[in-house]
Design a protein around this nucleic acid. Structure first.
Length: 877
DNA sequence: AGCACGCCGACT
DNA sequence: GTCGGCGTGCTC
């Protein structure tokens, strides 16, 4: 038998499967999805098995055997292997990159070079005797060299780095021994993190015997008797450390019993459970409101039919989407199938976790970035070992190694954080649809402000001719591309399918729209006031608080109610400027202004981390009129303190939430009403639910609007709607103040009226007019290099090449825009140029782009030029 | 990505 | 004459 293996080298030339022979004894351990160690040229590398065959396509005489199998159970399921291929084709990345993204970081290969003592050096066992060299020639070994050999022999194998460190004074000798063949190099592939194991005492099958045995022991073995009696009474495996603590004895006591064979001590895998300390109050399903009942009905029907379908659940904030998710998941579990819930990283709060753990108990695994490497790995292991059936997590949880997925929920589906910014630059929403096709699972996209892409999907008519995806035998991924497009997320996505079978018309059912207009228990949406800050300024108010917001905060302080203040920092640089000459502190390595950080009193670059001391004298004109521009949360906090002496403010931003668990700490404090105001960036807008919040203020609602991004209006509308939804979720009614310099902008007006429909109509019209997504699709190609001339030349010829190739697709509209300098024209001393491809979805374009980029392969290698391709970019910077 | 092979300049 | 520069190509 042979295996096709994708090796751990992310390069164009190695972006294909290599054939290896599977030695007979390994046969039962090697499967599609296995991690294996394979010889590759002179090295040993990790790889993933993507196929198993009886024949090879390569000269059988040259096929090498697999060197080792890394895991007892393959860490990837066959469907994930297939999905990785789809991702690599759709998002134009190396297949290995997609595969690696699917396993936890703990399983990333760590390559170690070890040495062992060569067998023919074995005669040199005793010190002082010199060993024979390979040619029968007698080499004189120095005593130091014998020391090294003896040390390595004792240890078995030693990592080269460690050996060199140990014998630092004689580093040359180690090398010499290796050259002479007395030390052999062994390459090892290690996991970054192993499962955590704990010594555990296992009682025998018949614990009753233990009492008997205790009698037989001599009187002086009191401690041993005690251990036996304890185990007879509690005949369950127990941690050795716990047992010792319980009985106040030492390990020797238990060990001697183990040596007699009366009990066993084993290493048992334990799971680091980040939620172990907490108990979750069990919750029962809540009664559903009529709208919720209808939505739940549609979803659970589809789940029960085991048919692939995508729903878009548009529910206003506070309409009870989570309860619908919970009950739908229950339906799915009752059918013996598994569920994945994706949540934006930022809203994966303990509160959210609690709701799922409360309903499904230890059936739930949680995956998010704040877990340590080990914790994350353990949660993942629980999924793989089928100890849980529900996963809640951020973007990458879409790769949970389940085998019978029935339901995938994507909460806040409009969030741009579902798009990964590093390779593989996948969108979890699209991957979810592809994965759901494989499993014939249902996808629920939930949001109070659905993305235009998803909304567009609901507007498409189901095709008359197409068979519904997931129908008989259709459970394959080549349908997935069609399904993603049929789902309408994009006009059409095509995995690099041979063009003869590429369906040009999307087929299958479109997204079904489900709507919930009402908040639970008929609570009204909060009243939203738009405050024109231009007018405030005209009337002499130069503070960042309008008079009405000031009054509203004052009122809340009196009534002992709470306030949430949002300061949207995006697009709001807190740059440092000299008021005399206009000098602005810039990063010397990037084309971006440095931002001021109060906590460290430093100015630093967000892109490369460059930092310098705060400047008090202008380096350009020596003036002392240096001002920190932009309204950072720190300044708002200061001003609050001045305006309302004694006010208790919790500030949440990058500066205060980097520490592990700090996020949670602040929110708990606020919940316990230990503060009057929660002030923060985007992170205060998402998913939080505090009963005593009756006032929400957006201090500068329109900062995003000024960014050169076609999604600016959409982002603004979403953010304002989300943050407004934080007010008045419980008994107390809420009120919202939106401060802006663009009070007539449709995104702000619609958000203030809670009018999603008028917003979407306006925005759709504009997008269509300007040929932007979702009507057209984009691919952003960014080139970077240290020197502008070479960079420009390459970018020009890449664009020319693309235009050339695009002609072959005529008459399908494919436009090549650029090259132009990127919005941030230099990062880390590298200049950046970009080209944008704008096309209608019917065009199968990924192959074309790859072809064009491939022509510049040698440029990349020779001149250290980098080309990065972003399919469906979310952020155009 | 590594690593070897291979073809042209400054040294013993 | 050789050591070594890094361009080119391969890894089952």
């Amino acid at each position: 038998m042979y295996a096709k293996v994708i090796v751990d080298v992310p390069a164009k030339q190695t972006n294909r499967a290599f054939d290896y022979w599977i030695p007979e004894p390994m046969r039962e351990w090697v499967a599609v999805g296995s991690r294996v160690g394979v010889p590759f040229g002179p090295r040993k590398l990790q790889g993933f098995v993507v196929d198993i065959r009886t024949q090879v396509d390569y000269d059988p005489a040259k096929v090498k055997p697999i060197a080792e199998v890394m895991d007892v159970y393959p860490p990837l399921t066959p469907d994930l292997v297939e999905l990785a291929r789809w991702i690599s084709q759709t998002y134009l990345c190396h297949e290995i990159t997609a595969l690696q993204a699917m396993i936890p970081g703990a399983l990333k290969a760590k390559y170690e070079r070890h040495v062992k003592v060569a067998e023919h050096a074995a005669d040199g066992r005793s010190a002082g005797t010199n060993v024979g060299g390979s040619g029968g020639q007698h080499l004189l070994l120095l005593p130091e060299q014998l020391d090294i050999l003896r040390y390595v022999r004792e240890k078995g194998t030693v990592e080269i780095g460690a050996l060199l460190q140990k014998f630092a004074a004689n580093g040359g000798l180690v090398k010499q021994l290796m050259l002479e063949g007395l030390l052999l190099e062994v390459q090892m592939i290690k996991d970054r993190m192993a499962a955590k194991k704990v010594l555990t005492v296992i009682p025998p099958d018949q614990p009753a015997q233990l009492l008997q045995r205790a009698e037989e022991l001599p009187a002086r073995s009191a401690k041993q008797k005690e251990v036996l009696r304890y185990l007879a009474e509690h005949p369950f495996p127990i941690k050795l450390s716990e047992l010792l603590h319980e009985l106040g004895t030492s390990a020797g006591t238990v060990k001697s019993l183990a040596e007699k064979g009366w009990l066993a001590i084993e290493e048992v895998e334990v799971f680091r459970d980040p939620y172990a300390q907490r108990s979750f109050r069990r919750t029962e399903p809540l009664a559903l409101m009529p709208e919720q009942r209808h939505v739940f009905g549609r979803i659970s029907e589809a789940v029960q039919d085991e048919r692939h379908q995508v729903f878009l659940l548009h529910g206003v904030t506070g309409s009870g989407k989570t309860e619908v998710y919970l009950q739908s998941i229950q339906t799915c579990l009752d059918l013996g199938r598994e569920a994945i819930v994706l949540v934006p990283e930022i809203s994966l709060t303990p509160q959210m976790v609690e709701r799922f753990k409360g309903r499904f108990g230890d059936q739930v695994a949680v995956l998010h970035s704040r877990l340590s490497h080990g914790e994350r790995y353990d949660e993942w292991r629980k999924i793989m070992l089928k100890q849980v059936r529900v996963v809640i997590g951020a973007r990458s949880a879409i790769f949970a190694p389940f085998t019978r997925i029935g339901l995938i929920i994507i909460d806040e589906e409009h969030e741009s954080s579902y798009k990964q910014e590093e390779s593989p630059k996948y969108h979890a929403r699209d991957v979810a649809v592809a994965r759901a096709v494989q499993h014939r699972a249902v996808v629920v996209l939930g949001s109070a402000t659905p993305s235009l892409e998803s909304m567009y999907g609901t507007m498409r008519q189901p095709s008359l001719t197409g068979t519904p995806s997931g129908a008989a035998g259709g459970n394959r991924l080549n349908d997935a591309a069609a399904a993603v497009s049929a789902a309408g997320l994009h006009p059409s996505v095509q995995a690099d399918a041979p063009s003869n079978e590429a369906p040009l018309q999307p087929q299958g059912a479109a997204i079904e729209l489900l709507t919930m207009h009402n908040r639970v228990e008929g609570r009204p949406l909060p009243r939203v006031h738009i405050i024109d800050m231009r007018e405030e300024l005209r009337e002499g108010n130069r503070s960042m608080f309008s008079r009405s917001l000031y009054k509203a905060i004052e009122e809340r302080l009196h009534k002992k109610e709470q306030t949430v203040l949002l300061l949207n920092r995006r697009g709001y640089s807190t740059f440092v400027m000299c008021r005399t000459c206009g000098y602005v502190a810039q990063c010397p390595h990037c084309d971006i202004s440095l931002t001021f950080h109060q906590s460290s009193r430093a100015i630093r670059c967000h892109y490369c981390g460059y930092a310098e001391r705060e400047v008090t004298v202008c380096p350009s004109c020596s003036s002392e009129h240096i001002r920190h521009f932009g309204t950072g949360t720190q300044r708002v906090e200061e001003e609050l303190g001045k305006l309302f002496p004694g006010i208790r403010v919790i500030r949440m931003d990058v500066d205060t939430t980097t520490e592990k668990g700090s996020h949670e700490k602040w929110l708990t404090m606020f919940r316990n009403r230990q503060a009057d105001v929660l002030l923060g960036t985007q992170m205060v807008a998402k998913g939080l639910d505090f009963p005593h919040v009756t006032l929400v203020g957006a201090l500068a609602a329109d900062t995003v609007l000024n960014l050169p991004d076609f999604r600016a209006a959409e982002r603004t509308f979403q953010l304002l709607t989300q943050v407004a939804g934080r007010a008045g979720r419980h008994e107390l009614p809420g009120e919202v103040f939106v401060q802006t310099y663009a009070p007539e902008h449709y995104s702000i007006v619609s958000a203030s009226r809670h009018d999603y429909k008028s917003f979407i109509n306006k925005e759709m019209t504009l997008r269509k007019l300007h040929e932007y997504p979702p009507f057209h699709r984009l691919i952003l190609i960014t080139l970077s290099h240290e020197q502008i001339p070479l960079l420009m030349r390459t970018a020009e010829s890449l664009a020319a090449r693309l235009k050339e190739l695009a002609k072959s697709l005529a008459p399908l509209p494919v436009e090549i825009l650029g090259p132009v300098a990127s919005p941030i024209a230099r990062i880390k001393d590298r200049y950046r140029f970009q080209c944008m491809i704008k096309y209608r979805g019917e065009a199968s374009i990924s192959g074309l782009v790859r072809q064009a980029a491939a022509a510049f392969e040698d440029m990349e290698k020779q001149h250290k030029l980098t080309i990065s391709i972003d399919v469906d970019p979310q952020v155009l910077m």
